[in-house]
Nucleic acid binder design. Sequence first.
DNA 1: ACCTGAACACCGTTCAAGT
DNA 2: ACCTGAACACCGTTCAAGT
Lengths: 223, 223
Amino acid sequence: MSDPSTSRPARGRPPRLDQARTVETALDLLNGSGLDALTMRRLADAMGVQAGALYRYFRTKEDLLTAMAERMMAGIRAPAGGADWSDRLSGLARALRQALLAHRDGARVFAGTHSTGPGTLGFAESCTGVLREAGFSDADAARAALAVVRLTIGHTLEEQAALRTEDGSPADPEVLRAAVSSGGYPHLTAALPTLTEADQAPHFEFGLALLVAGLETLRQPRR
Amino acid sequence: MSDPSTSRPARGRPPRLDQARTVETALDLLNGSGLDALTMRRLADAMGVQAGALYRYFRTKEDLLTAMAERMMAGIRAPAGGADWSDRLSGLARALRQALLAHRDGARVFAGTHSTGPGTLGFAESCTGVLREAGFSDADAARAALAVVRLTIGHTLEEQAALRTEDGSPADPEVLRAAVSSGGYPHLTAALPTLTEADQAPHFEFGLALLVAGLETLRQPRR
DNA sequence: ACCTGAACACCGTTCAAGT
DNA sequence: ACCTGAACACCGTTCAAGT
């Protein structure tokens, strides 16, 4: 079955490269060193090959990054479907955040690409499906799904950016604290303890809860 | 007053470069060719100088990008303050989107940097101020402001990404349409007409309205 | 003090040539 | 068919040297 001599013609040597393994190696490299250090040359090195060889499998680096984003989205499993629509929608948003957090700079990779693969489309299908089945119109379901996804991307982008300077160096919170307390920002000063919290999950949950509460008022106009 | 011979010592030739003019030129270049084409060498060229000279005014390219983001934020004028808190908050969010839209790839520049300058902090101060004066707790004001800013960034990032492929080439909507209609995505198919609308403002307004409605339920728990 | 010139250590991408 | 080697046209950044 998996014997290369019986499965397909396969004349010549078996290839040392393929799309799936290359994407996997690229995601490992991403986790190890971050997006800025992910170059075609370094990826080729990790695969034991010259940089030019990658271009037989990916037309450009952007195509590779798109394949990486699609691979991240394909890993998402929608949580159990028994709950009501607001729990299911929240679960999808949390799953998206987790999928992006699973790889260093995951949100940056996702935000910089536009996959139309089954993972990405499947996730969008789930979001709009939950909303349409809850009774929202096609247009409202589309726009609500966009809002949830875009809030999640915006949030996770900043969450991972804060992680970048986490260890050593003048950490981001310190710089912000200094800038705020030096000037005349009374409201920001009051908000600062919350803004500089290490755990970003409550911030995400708060924004998500606002969107869901807003959607609920849309379903029950005045009650 | 502005005579260089009386204002300051200024021995030697007057400098051909300064921070403000460099940032302005960089923003012009951004509008003309986009972020990917904005290199230190091309910027130096536009200023009639060698690339190395820029490093006397900006420690790194990232510092330049941060200054550009700060310049964009400094241009924001908060809309008139007579309205109620929800209108003022929406006005701030709209002003942020407009400021990012004012420059090609503006959202990408902003999302990739972390200015702590007066423009950026002043905007954050306005957002938290509106919310705290409306009676929200410090923590809720902080998190609500984060949600509004992050939704706006997430939205504008995608809005400008869609603009990138606007003219010529296989435009993004077409690719999406083809991918969706080929597979088994019934909900996405229903949502497609809305998702592929050219005008993105309604999408933004919808998400913003959801956040504001969510905040209103927080103020009046059950009524 | 301010800028040039030139270099260093890289990039993404292409493509003839080898096997 | 698949990969190498080498090149092309760039990058960001540094720094002695000039003026």
